[in-house]
């Protein structure tokens, strides 16, 4: 196995390459420096038609760890569809979406562990409480589910007091917060946020802002939104409405 360590003493930053994630963690612990796992997302010439009407045409971009990208566009311009294609929920008519770890494409099976997604079309179980929802998804993903971690997440999205309330009785803003928590459950390197701020109050928007900032330290974010404020969190913007 080859491990290439590139120390660049001229600049304070250093980059290093390795095939196993374990090495990273050890080094992080040793040096006390936050080292990024180099995931990248590559979208090449993605097109999508429904019957004969084209929706997306030749979308290409690349995203590195630490970056955030915003996808803007009018209603019906295909923002959500693009995100769903990236997540693998919809098959593109042409082109491909790949996630790389150190320039090595990642298999479909492992992709599932890398993606967290929030979207209006993704619901949570209304007949469970918020905490039960999170624990259920932990179990489904095969993460050792401890209550502590789930409660931590609830704290992060500001739902701590209502953790044991049935989701049926939740307001739409609270449900949106829970969806955010659900997407963050497995610390995904690629976070897909479709209208993250929908139904949220100003406190909720702060939560979203915080999440995107935190995500920058170890992963990528793609935000689909028309809200000026949400687009501003990103480094780059793709505009789908032409």
């Amino acid at each position: 196995m080859s491990r290439v360590f590139v120390f660049d003493f001229a600049t304070p930053k250093f980059r290093l390459t390795s095939r196993t994630q374990g090495i990273w963690l050890n080094l992080t612990w040793l040096y006390g420096i936050n080292i990024h796992v180099m995931y990248s997302l590559r979208v090449t010439n993605v097109s999508k038609h429904y019957s004969a009407t084209p929706l997306l045409q030749n979308i290409s971009f690349q995203l590195q760890t630490g970056e955030a990208l915003a996808v803007a566009g009018w209603n019906g311009s295909g923002k959500s569809t693009l995100l769903r294609i990236i997540a693998g929920l919809v098959k593109p008519s042409a082109g491909k979406v790949q996630i790389f770890f150190d320039n090595e494409p990642i298999s479909k099976e492992r992709k599932r562990k890398l993606i967290g997604m929030v979207a209006p079309s993704l619901a949570i179980y209304e007949e469970l409480t918020a905490l039960e929802n999170l624990e259920f998804f932990c179990r489904v993903r095969g993460i050792p589910h401890n209550r502590e971690k789930c409660l931590d997440l609830m704290e992060r999205v500001g739902l701590c007091e209502q953790a044991n309330k049935m989701c049926r009785n939740y307001s739409s803003g609270m449900i949106q917060r829970l969806k955010l928590a659900q997407a963050l459950l497995h610390n995904p390197p690629l976070l897909l946020l479709d209208e993250p701020g929908c139904n949220l109050d100003s406190k909720g928007m702060k939560v979203v802002e915080r999440i995107i900032l935190d995500q920058r330290s170890f992963g990528m974010t793609v935000i689909a939104s028309n809200e000026e404020r949400e687009v501003e969190y990103a480094d780059r913007v793709i505009n789908l409405s032409k």
Binding site: K48, Y50, A52, K91, S93
Partner: peptide, 8 residues
């Protein structure tokens, strides 16, 4: 006759 069909 119906282009693109078959790819959704």
């Amino acid at each position: 006759k119906k282009p693109n069909i078959g790819q959704r």
